[in-house]
Write a protein that binds this DNA or RNA. Structure first.
Lengths: 302, 302
DNA sequence: ACCTATAATTTCATTTTTGGAATCATGCTG
DNA sequence: CAGCATGATTCCAAAAATGAAATTATAGGT
């Protein structure tokens, strides 16, 4: 019956059965019959009609007012779902961490846009985790443990962390032989890596260190900068210095030890269907990360 | 297609095809087929189903979220219209003038309620014309010219007006022979009858008088009371004193002259369908008034 | 008043949908 | 592991809907 009500709404808007039939690509006979069937069900005539004259009855007015907006919303929702579910065109709003996006991942964004020129990508870069529901983000890339239960998450890769310092700092203070030696050093702490959990590449031995930091910051990029400037030893994701590692501005400290690996995730809200574009991007990112050791947990000096 | 979407919503809510079929009073074969047809149109499976297990796909979730509220609104609107249009049960909000409603018309309200015990009548009495749209009145009884173009109106009857004064007042001042004599008297003016247009019952002669009133009030009941108390001559609708006329508390002044007749109307907003209850009441009122001379323009002393 | 053009309705052969009955699938219980 | 109960699907005759073509209705123009 809802289809017949929708038909009636179109008839009312078109102010005639023939023009409604034309708009809906239906024969006039079908429109006539279905309107009459609806009127029989309702138990009232909805339309006064004759050749060249058209008016709604008072019942028809009531029906129109009650259902017109609903029919519009139905059709809008249906259209939106059709295009949103299946088409690789239109808007796609993505959040991603600033550090890796303007560095290692810039070619990935560029490649995606070239591959899908009809997708209008809005890329919100931030090193903070924005609320996806509030900001209406379709998909977010995140690094590190994801604890928000409102989000679906798919693991796309992982990044190792390791201890680094500037060569000047190490020349002044001497090399370290053991994680315990860290206590004698200036340390740069960053909020993303609150606990320093180190594991030995050779023996598999694990140590969790509770250290007192000389400097504490909440931005990984700043921590890298401070380490490079000789202010101490930092535990950093290798993505932060992978590209420039050969320049020697940051040296590994305790090179046979590594920090905990940080997984890279795609996340999106549970209530939200992942449309074709977001799925496409997610798969594109996964493929891109699969081909780069830095996102498969590799270390730059090995 | 909207019918199939609605069916899908019911399937999702019932968490099964068989239970949805039972609720909708449809064969399971029909439900199965129409769901599959919808899935073909959508180009995606909406439901994972097997014997004893049921789950929506992510596309199904999206469809459910997009359409569930709309389907509910559709069904609510449809149910509302069905009952509102045709059933003589439920709410009916009516506005009517206080004076005639607690007097002459009280038996009419009582009779209507007895005749239609399932109608829940809300009777808003006032001698002011309330905004029907704002107060969501279904139907209003009004007396006098109706100039609001947003209202449909149907004339149900009419009430004559005439000049009256207390016997004490007339004994003190003497009888009148001609409308011009009114100028020598104390007059009680009421806003509902701003112009005194008198017509002679015998000759048909009409006079429009522009008089200076001693007292001006905006409530007809108060005007009646003042006249009864000997404060002068008032031009009043006969409905105001029809019942008590034989008690002699108010005497006709210039008994062969009458004031302008005031029509009684049922009015309702043009955009609003007059439902079965309001129609029923309107017709009931018209029949009731038709049987009472006071509402057919009669004078009490003739 | 008549004619024409347009809108609505009706007819009927064809297509599609329906629903009862039969069949299949599967999860739970013993 | 087998059997049973329940849910889902398929089959097919019957019913309903469809749409092209023909017909009817009517409003406007001459």
């Amino acid at each position: 019956m809802l289809d017949d009500v929708a038909l009636f709404i179109h008839i009312a808007r078109s102010r005639g059965l023939s023009s409604a039939a034309a708009k809906l690509n239906l024969p006039a006979a079908t429109v006539t019959r279905r309107l009459r069937k609806l009127e029989e069900k309702v138990g009232a005539q909805l339309v006064h009609r004759s050749a060249r004259k058209f008016a709604l009855t008072t019942e028809g007015d009531a029906y129109f007012e009650a259902f017109a907006d609903l029919v519009t919303q139905f059709e809008t929702a249906r259209q939106g779902l059709r295009s949103d579910l299946h088409e690789l065109r239109g808007r796609l709003k993505v959040a991603a961490p600033t550090n890796i996006s303007v560095g290692l991942l810039e070619p990935m964004w560029s490649g995606f846009l070239n591959a899908y020129p009809e997708i209008q990508l809005t890329l919100n870069l931030s090193n903070e985790n924005k609320d996806l529901l509030e900001t209406q983000i379709d998909l977010a890339l995140r690094v590190g443990p994801q604890t928000d239960m409102r989000l679906y998450q798919k693991r796309l890769g992982c990044v190792a962390t390791m201890l680094v310092a500037s060569p000047e700092y190490l020349a002044a203070t001497g090399e370290l032989n053991d994680p315990e030696d860290l206590r004698q050093h200036k340390l740069i702490w960053v909020s993303a890596l609150p606990i320093w959990q180190l594991s030995n590449l050779d023996t598999g031995l694990q140590e969790t260190l509770h250290l007192s930091a000389n400097v504490a910051v909440d931005d990984i990029g700043l921590a890298r900068q401070l380490a490079r400037d000789g202010h101490g030893i930092a535990l950093l994701p290798v993505s932060e210095f992978w590209e420039n590692f050969e320049t020697g501005q940051l040296h590994p400290v305790l090179p046979r030890w590594q920090g905990q690996k940080r997984d890279v995730y795609a996340v999106w809200p549970t209530g939200r269907l992942l449309n074709a574009r977001a799925k496409c991007l997610r798969d594109y990112v996964q493929d891109y990360l699969a081909e780069r050791p830095v996102f498969q947990g590799a270390l730059p000096h090995l």
